[in-house]
Every structure is written in C-alpha cells, then in structure tokens.
Design a protein around this nucleic acid. Structure first.
Lengths: 217, 217
DNA sequence: CAAAATAGGAGACAGTTGTGCACTGACTGC
DNA sequence: GCAGTCAGTGCACAACTGTCTCCTATTTTG
C-alpha cells in the first residue's frame, strides 16, 4: 500500500545508521576531531568510499549526531518540564529524568557534553545553538509560571541559562559516576539540593525588592 | 656563583616552552586528542625527535599544560576570593576577575574548558581532580564565612561545586563572546545576576525547614 | 684541557590517513 | 522487461603520522 519504504532506501538508511552508531561508539573514548573516516567505516562494516554517499566528512557526521541527540532529548525534556505540581516534586522529577536520560542514551549525551566545547567549530556552534534555543524555551515556560510573573524577559533568560547549564553539569556528573556506585546517588543528592537552592533564590528575586508572596518564610 | 641556571638547562627550558606554546596555540582550534606530535614540533621549530626529550607523547604534554594552567589560575583566584567586603561587591569583583583571566590567558583557559570533558582520559581526570580540589578549597572558605555558619560540610561542598561550575560556564561564555562586542558586557551582566540569585538562595537555606508551604499538593 | 654528557638534528621505517577513479550488481520507474 | 539509477566495492595514490637508530655540536666536569 505504501511505497514510502523502498528496499533501496531501506538499505541506505541501514548503513547510515551503522555509520552513526559506529561513530557514536568510537566517540566514547575520543573526540570528534580525532575521529577518522576510515576508522568509522571499519567499525560500521563498510568500505571507506561508502562513507561519502552519506557525509562529506566526519564534521558533517558530527552535525548529524548533534541533531539526532538533541532532538530526542529535547522532546523528552520538554514533556517532563510541562508537568505541573509542587516545586520540590518537580525538581526531583527533573533530576530523575536526567539520570534516566544518561542511563538510556549515554553515548549521545557524552557526545553532546564533549563537543559542546570541543575542537570542531561547526559542531560546537550546532550544540550551542540548540542549547540556546532550549534555554529560550525554558525561559518562556518560566514566564508562564506564576512564579515568573513580573520578571523581565532578560531575567527569565538569565535564569533559564542557569538551569540549562546546571542540567548539562548534572548529566556530565552522572556520566563520570559509575552506574553501579553510590556515587550515582550522591550526584542525585547534590543536583537536587543545588536546584532547591536556586529555587530559593528565585523566590527572593530581585534581591532587594519584596515579593508578592504571602510571607513565604 | 656557579649555582646559577646553566646554559644547558636554559636551552632545554627554552625548547620546552616552545613546545608548550606551540601546543597551546594549536589547541585553540582543535582538541588534544587530534594534536600530532610532529605538528607541535613543526610550529615550535624543532625536530620530532627533540619532542621525546621532554614528553613521552602528546598526552603527557597535555597533563603538563593542565598543571601550568590551573596552577597560575588557582593562585590568582584564591587571592581574589580571600578579599572581604559586601556580597554584591565581591560578586562583581569575582566576575571581573573571570573576564580578566580570559583576556590574559585565553589559550590556557580554552584548553581547560575543552579538555574538562575531552577525549583523553588522563587529561580529563587531571582537570577534574584539580577542579575538585579547588571546589573543596572554596567550600572551606565558605565555611569560614559568617554566612556559612550552621551549614553541613556536605551542603558547603554542594554550594562550592555550584560556584565552581558557574565559574567554568562563565569563562566559557567569555571565550565564546568576541572581545570587542557588547556581547562581552552581556556575559558580565548575566554572570553577575546569576551569582546574585544564587546568593539570595544561600541566604534562605535550608529551604523547607520550619516553613509551611502555601499550598502543598 | 680532554673526556663524558646531553640537547637537538638527519634520515629512514612501516603504518595509516583522506580521496580519487572505474566498476558491479541490485533496485525502480517507464 | 529493460535501461537507468545508485549504494556500495576494489584498488591505487600521495601525504602524513609516530618512532627508531645513528650523528653532531656544545656544555659540563674532573
């Protein structure tokens, strides 16, 4: 019924995936700049020339990986942030989500964290761009929250950036911790309390001014 | 009189510096993992063989760079953090210090930020280790502050980590901003306000204790 | 002042890299 | 059902890499 599949495109997509997966696994122990085209094809089980049918060079492959990683991540995080409830609960849920993401897509997340400040300009810019867009979205959501009433757009973005950066630091900490250790639990504890502290600051912002809050302390 | 430097050691030290500087300049546009031994010696103006007289491989050179970068940075930051005064003023001074560091040692700082999550394990661990030690020192200082009275050691470290991570994010933002732009000023503004917000949270910590939430779920 | 020490250089080695070219064989639209 | 498309192969090439062994020139030392 649907001609959308096509045995040809199926094969094409399959080797493309093989290339992406090969790169992803190799990138667990090196960075994109040192990733060789041949190296990738060797692991993927295809010849070097086949690589060119999909990507001009490893840089372009990297950009594809950025899109892939941040797209799925974006969707997941967005749906979770949309949940409402009490602040403390939302903080816990968010941190748990980070942990789950790291457990489920370690390679993707490691790649993003690594290449965010990595040596390949265009990939770095791609990551920064997506993270900026994400921060803007978070800012918008913060503005919709009753707590964000009266905040300037600038302040909202400032806070959103803090949250996003903290998110990256947290997933990075999870990655550094072995999955078995109690180190993992320590990361959770620290991340939660840091978010609670930031939240406390948020309740008393701007610093000098009194908040329209029924004496929250 | 003969205990002076010695012409031989002087020459040795000179080419060692040349190697480090060459690497540092090359690392502005790539990461350590892709840094070639020959590449470094070419820029340094020596032969590949001379490299071995100083470092076993580029990894070892990287570790030397970590020490060099974080040692001077550590000293500078420590002296500035030691200054006392009003909180708002100290925040401004700290952020100004970050800006100054980036302006003065851009290559060193870029290297640290990049290799913190980079592809070379031992270098990554070296950076993390130094940053952890730095965080512990900050925690100790926070504990000495009257504001830190009554905080658990765990909470102090949690806050110190937040500060150190924020510091790294800030210098990274400065690096990404062109030195001429008004972007630079924007980074300063954002960093200051983020620190003020964290400071506000610090004043109201711990959060939930003996404090009735308005409408718990 | 001669002999030992040593920072650095010359050249060569095998291995790897990215990329071009001609080719094959399966799929697909007409 | 046939001709064209195209994903993937095989092979070759020059360039580059890390590392080896010898060699040179200058400093140090007894």
């Amino acid at each position: 019924m649907s001609e959308t599949i096509g045995a040809r495109q199926a094969q094409r997509h399959k080797t493309r995936r093989a290339l992406l997966d090969a790169a992803l696994s190799l990138l667990e122990e090196q960075s994109l700049g040192s990733l060789g085209l041949r190296e990738v094809t060797r692991v993927a089980g295809v010849t070097p020339t086949a690589f060119y049918r999909h990507f001009r060079d490893t840089e372009e492959l990297g950009i594809a990986l950025v899109d892939e990683a941040l797209q799925s991540l974006h969707a997941t995080v967005r749906s979770t942030l949309a949940a409402s409830g009490e602040a403390a609960q939302r903080i816990d849920t968010t941190v748990d989500l980070m942990a789950e993401l790291v457990r489920e897509y370690p390679a993707h997340i490691r790649f993003i964290v690594r290449e965010r400040h990595g040596g390949v300009r265009r990939v770095r810019e791609a990551v920064s761009g997506q993270l900026d867009a994400f921060a803007r979205e978070v800012a918008e959501r913060l503005g919709a929250d009753p707590l964000g009433a009266g905040w300037s757009a600038d302040d909202l973005l400032m806070l959103a950036r803090l949250y996003v950066d903290h998110m990256v630091m947290t997933v990075s900490a999870y990655l550094a911790a072995g999955p078995d250790d109690g180190e993992w639990a320590a990361v959770t504890r620290t991340a939660r309390r840091q978010l609670r502290l930031i939240h406390a600051g948020r309740l008393h912002w701007p610093v000098g001014r009194a908040r329209p809050e029924p004496d929250a302390l």
